[in-house]
Amino acid sequence: MAVTGSVRAGIIDVHAHWLPRELLSLPPGSPLGGMNDRDGELYLGDNPLFFPTTAMTDIDAVVTDTLKVGLGARAVSAPPFAFPVHAPSEADDYVSAYNDRLAEAVSSSDGTLVGLGLTRVDNVAAARREMTRLTAMEGIAGVAVPPLVQVQSYGDGVMREVLAVAAEADLAVLVHPMQLPRPEWKDHYLVNLIGNPVETTTAVASVILSGVMEELPNLRICFVHGGGCAPALLGRWEHGWRSREDVRQGSSHPPADSFAKLYFDTVTHDPQILRLLTAHAPPDRILCGSDYPFDMAQPDPVRFLLDHGLDARTLEANGRAFLGIQKPA
């Protein structure tokens, strides 16, 4: 286990973001331009992100905000703009630098923060090299990765092998969408409002229908934003699996069986959707999430969950199980 030190007792938010100022330039090849500070507000290229730069870059600010909303701890990962996917072979130095800074940051947080590092998903050897480094870093519990890269997800090829490396290394995997652009989503923030859940849903289906969880039963993998549209589509996938040979050719178990082995965070923005998620996912697979500090974040994640029937002790235990943390402080 990478996380062997003391982590504060209480509910753990597994979905929050941090990036040091010296890495705001983003990895090589980023089509969005770097992130930058303008009078204390963070921008992505020329686009405002509508929160203070310190909320993304300053560890003391992240710790303060974590405790302010009643959380015990937070798992922080890079924002998806920092995923090394556009020129991955040129991004090794950026990935290593981020992971080194992340380990330093969480070690200074007095047990309030845990880290989810970066890794390439285009090359198995590079992923193995970096994940091996992560396992030796105190306070690092796993990796955050994109759901899709070009035309591939985690059902086959290199990306599937990367999940096998993570399972072998006993690292948690947090799958986070990237807001991939499409012409029909150019207005109304649809690239996020529709694009993010659709990306996540595609990755969930890829993992379930390709038999990943049957092959890797020890893989700890979480899909954010409540699994996107997956809870609403699970019945459709079940029907397709029972009705069509091409749907079930990659998996020997019905989709609901594999769905029950996945973790999901609770950034649903709607109690009814949260209830739908908890109707399909077992109680021990539900994780507190916030998406801090973005504009689409759940601002009071603990209150949202407790007000809608989730149990604080169960949520804490689930967060520790997913992240591989053994004992509370």
Rank of each mutant, 00 (worst) to 15 (best):
E184H: 11
E214G: 10
V165K: 04
N218Y: 12
G240E: 10
V198M: 13
L209A: 02
L171V: 06
Q152D: 15
A144K: 02
C222L: 06
L216D: 00
L234F: 06
Y154F: 14
D156I: 14
A167G: 06
A167W: 03
E161Y: 02
V158S: 04
V224W: 03
E215M: 08
L148P: 03
R160T: 02
F264Q: 00
L180C: 09
G195S: 12
D246P: 13
L171H: 01
G250E: 04
V224L: 01
D170F: 06
E138M: 10
H269Q: 10
S206N: 12
P146I: 07
A256Y: 06
A167H: 05
I208S: 01
F259K: 06
E130P: 09
V212Y: 00
G228I: 07
I140L: 12
P183A: 08
F259M: 07
Y154N: 03
A169P: 05
G227K: 03
T266P: 08
V173R: 00
Q179S: 14
D246K: 14
M159R: 00
E238G: 11
S153H: 04
H176P: 08
L193K: 14
A169W: 03
V165P: 00
S252Q: 11
P254F: 05
D257P: 09
A167V: 00
V191W: 11
G235N: 09
A141I: 05
V267H: 02
M213S: 04
E214A: 11
G142A: 13
L233D: 03
S243P: 10
T266H: 00
R248S: 15
V173K: 04
S243V: 12
W241F: 08
L216G: 02
V224Y: 04
R133V: 14
A205P: 07
E130I: 13
M213Q: 00
E168H: 10
F264V: 01
R220P: 03
G195F: 08
T200L: 13
K186V: 13
H225E: 14
K261H: 04
L134A: 10
A166I: 05
H269V: 07
A205C: 11
Y189Q: 15
V204G: 08
P146S: 13
V198P: 11
G250T: 05
A141G: 10
R133I: 10
Q272G: 15
G235H: 09
L233M: 13
H269T: 09
S243N: 13
L174N: 01
D170N: 14
R128V: 07
Y154G: 00
G235D: 06
E245C: 10
W185Y: 15
D187R: 15
E138K: 13
E130T: 13
H188A: 14
G226L: 06
G195A: 11
P147F: 08
I221P: 02
E245R: 15
P146N: 10
C229L: 15
Y263L: 09
P231H: 01
L233T: 05
G227N: 06
F264C: 00
M213W: 01
